[in-house]
Write a protein that binds this DNA or RNA. Structure first.
Lengths: 328, 328
DNA sequence: TTGAAAGCGCTAACAG
DNA sequence: CTGTTAGCGCTTTCAA
């Protein structure tokens, strides 16, 4: 930076100012500095900047796993949005463990991040304390309904379950079933199951049960669950799945054992994954706005950093969309 | 750190040493320092550390998109492995653009990363120059066959295509087709197509064509491609798909139009995605070792950082696996 | 709008 | 194995 300043005939602090707030520097100086940066191929050292400013241009994003398409979508969107403002995404995977999440938060704080982004509303006591004391913007994504540490962007998962149940009932179904995977770890899937069962059972003449498996969701588990469901509850006429991977397995299993969808069995999923519209039959599902969550989250972070006077909202409900297709 | 040193009755540099190389500090000092860190709830400032060391504990990982399950797998694995050594993953998405990748590399270099990880072997000239001059370990993942900037971990995609063709021919197929999506951007899918066509056409009595679509791969595109393929080449008896999303669409479309798999048509995919084994019929596919690529990459980076004397290899061929299932 | 000065909190020789 | 010393390359008042 000193070399750039020398070449541009200004002081280092003017170069620094130019880099951070270009508008505060005169056109003449700006031109000279830009030329010097270019000629010298100057690359700012963000470590030094972060040290001096006691805050870095890194945003720590912690999700259960980026292998999960939902979180991948949000992470990808956030990186794209934050990258435009030259903010770096630092990624961490909690693998659905609060202990691991806590470690990641500790590591993250060492970087003096511009913001910390978590998934969901349940965290260890230490995590909450670290973050509250940390004097850093905190965002919790993908879940609404509890008390956020700072800001939250997401939707109500009980509503998702409730919407699914209502939809199936409206289609004339009476014997409902929820098919869930890894419910012990996936709090949000559990909330969807709760909402589903509650709404279904509150409806006169409708019954609802749940069948689950502890392994992570995939189509093979979905197929197993459907087989087990048919065995346990031969008279079911509709299943709601904790996500579309499970629903895909249900579709394949029904094909194999000759259960007609939707005539004999209605199926609704969650996720609207890339294959859902192309299934045979096309899968009715509920689409969570993974990308919207990402853009809204990025916007809140940017607002905070730029302290745009106007108080930023604390909670954003992105809602979700029911997509009715052939399977119901 | 000075507070910790004072409380532990040692000098700050001993604390620093303890933090970086615990084994180099006496047991007595270690105990005292650990106690002090705990009591004071000391959180190291990695920005300061990075500045002083002229190198940070951040690893920049740039992939086309983490929405793609292949790269998500590698990113997740790398984060887990590097996280154990307290290295942070900084994520960037090139969206298959060399220009965007170049921007991300420039941003990454500002952080003085411990290593830069890219996807594939083709990059802009500037990217290559920046990285070669950057005096930073560079890894290129998921592709072998060219001249790596520094180190590479992956496999040969032409071999994948060739393996698929050979498999189909061995199953007695004669009229082969490659179904591809987004080949103009996805160099590795193009390499697989090339290998497939070459091997098929070199085989006596076997013909091979290609049908493609410019949109990103998903099941709907796969269904469209299959329909188009049947129209153009009514006598095909086998299709290889650029990935399993396409293959899934093919399976559904064949169900709809009544084409028997594998009797009338053999299908092979690429990816072994989470649904592939559970399809109806189960999908024959080629599994790329996304997790192995991640662990090997992490190992190379760690070796470099710790300068484990022994020269680290420059290129690692992880190979891939053919999984024969019902669809062929 | 610009510049001088004073660090930010740590690392890395080096000597002991 | 431990301590001394001299910065790393920026940002940020504050004054001009």
């Amino acid at each position: 930076m000193m070399d750039v300043a020398e070449r541009a005939q200004v002081s280092p602090s003017t170069v620094s100012l130019y880099l951070r707030k270009p508008d505060a520097v005169s056109a003449t100086a700006s031109r000279a500095i830009a030329e010097a940066i270019d000629a010298l191929k100057y690359v700012p050292n963000l470590m030094a900047g972060g040290l001096a400013a006691a805050s870095s241009r890194a945003v720590s994003v912690i999700v259960p796993s980026v292998r999960n398409a939902f979180f991948a979508e949000t992470v990808a969107t956030m990186q794209a949005e934050l990258g435009k403002e030259r903010l770096q995404v630092m990624l961490g995977h909690s693998e659905y463990s609060e202990r691991e999440e806590e470690n990641l938060v500790k590591m993250a704080l060492s970087w003096k991040p511009a913001a910390v982004v978590l998934t969901g509303l349940s965290h260890s006591a230490t995590t909450r304390r670290l973050l509250k004391d940390g004097n850093v913007p905190v965002l919790e994504l993908w879940e609404l309904g509890g008390e956020p540490i700072d800001m939250a962007v997401g939707f109500y998962h009980e509503q998702v379950g409730s919407t699914a149940a209502t939809h199936l009932v409206q289609r004339g179904r009476k014997r409902l079933l929820f098919l869930g995977a890894r419910l012990q770890e996936d709090r949000r899937a559990t909330l969807r199951a709760d909402g589903f069962l509650k709404t279904a059972r509150e409806t006169a003449g409708v019954s609802a049960e749940i069948v689950q498996h502890p392994a992570p969701a995939n189509a093979a588990i979905g197929a197993m669950l459907l087989a087990e469901a048919i065995r346990k509850y031969p008279d079911i006429d509709a299943v709601a799945c904790s996500n579309d991977h499970i629903a895909l397995g249900v579709i394949f299993e029904c094909q194999r054992i000759g259960v007609q969808i939707p005539e004999r069995l209605s199926v609704i999923g969650f996720g609207d994954l890339s294959f859902s519209a192309a299934c045979n039959p096309a899968l009715t599902t509920i689409r969570p706005p993974g990308d919207l969550i990402g853009t809204e989250a990025a916007r809140l972070i940017l607002d905070r950093i730029n302290e745009t006077g106007r108080a930023t909202p604390t909670v954003i409900d992105t809602r979700f969309t029911l997509l009715q297709r052939q399977s119901s």
